[in-house]
Write a protein that binds this DNA or RNA. Structure first.
Lengths: 151, 151
DNA sequence: TGACTAACGTTCGTGGCACTAACGAAATTA
DNA sequence: TAATTTCGTTAGTGCCACGAACGTTAGTCA
């Protein structure tokens, strides 16, 4: 795909490198999770549900960053697999309450181990301290630009 | 979009942060270049053409990483704007030779200044040395994973 | 020379992702 | 009571990475 054929000034554009690396990382985790019949969004949703307890879809959307229109399919897939349950909220009949099941918890633990491996594969070229620095940079960039977007 | 609502363990997944940052960076440059009636691929193609001289579309594809099927539209757009010329290669009638025009060179210089600003905006939260470290990390990750893909 | 193989430019299609619009139903506010 | 907002859902947009297949042309080699 990307070669040393690419002229240096183009090869060094940070946003370009970033998007290429992101593509690689994305494929890595997508393929890895596929082996466990899961997608990234399954991981995000289950992690959020375990941490926050039962919540509505709208709130789960805000928590995970998954658009509520896309979340519908994710919840469908997770209910099909028995990892979550979708029930109408008696207190507010517009809402669905999403709850993680025991099976979902067990599944999530497998996913978490898998995910740790995948992140490790992804960061393989970096030493421990370098990984911390790298993720710190990412966190700062993320904070900066998502703050701008909100304004 | 992304909030501090997100539970910490999810928020810290490196590949997730990376893809969020990449999305921000991408939007930044896409919107920035749109103001100059250009796309990222225009920049990549023009940079490559200036560095390598006239080449065939297939070679330009290898050099820039743009798929040759997608490159067709890019060359169309650039010829419409008078930035490149597409001519059949008399030495090999399968090939089109793509050449950057003088107008293309002038356009590219504007794009290069614009791109420098955009990269600067993108990296704003990082100091000079930090930027170098960050791009070094990216380069190493990129080299690692594109080497794997080729094998 | 003739058959095979490979490269080229092009068109079309796929799947995923970020994101918007609009809707009926239900809740909240004025 | 009327107007506004929220919720889940469906449908659709545009962009991107990528693959399949096709006709055309070149190179290979029996």
């Amino acid at each position: 795909m990307d070669e040393q054929l690419t002229p240096a000034p183009l090869r060094k554009v940070p946003s370009r490198m970033l998007s290429l690396v992101a593509t690689h990382a994305d494929r890595l985790v997508t393929e890895g999770l596929a082996g466990a019949d899961a997608r990234k969004w399954h991981y995000a949703a289950l992690m959020a549900l375990r941490a926050s307890g039962p919540v509505s879809q709208a709130e789960l959307s805000r928590i995970t960053g998954i658009y509520r229109s896309d979340l519908v399919a994710v919840i469908n897939e997770l209910t099909e697999r028995g990892h979550v349950e979708r029930a109408p909220d008696p207190a507010d009949r517009r809402r669905n309450v999403i709850t993680i099941t025991d099976q979902g918890r067990r599944h999530l633990e497998r996913l978490q181990r898998l995910m740790a491996e995948l992140q490790d594969d992804f960061l393989a070229p970096l030493s421990g301290p370098e990984r911390e620095q790298f993720t710190d940079f990412l966190a700062r960039l993320l904070a900066h630009h998502s703050r701008l977007r909100r304004a």
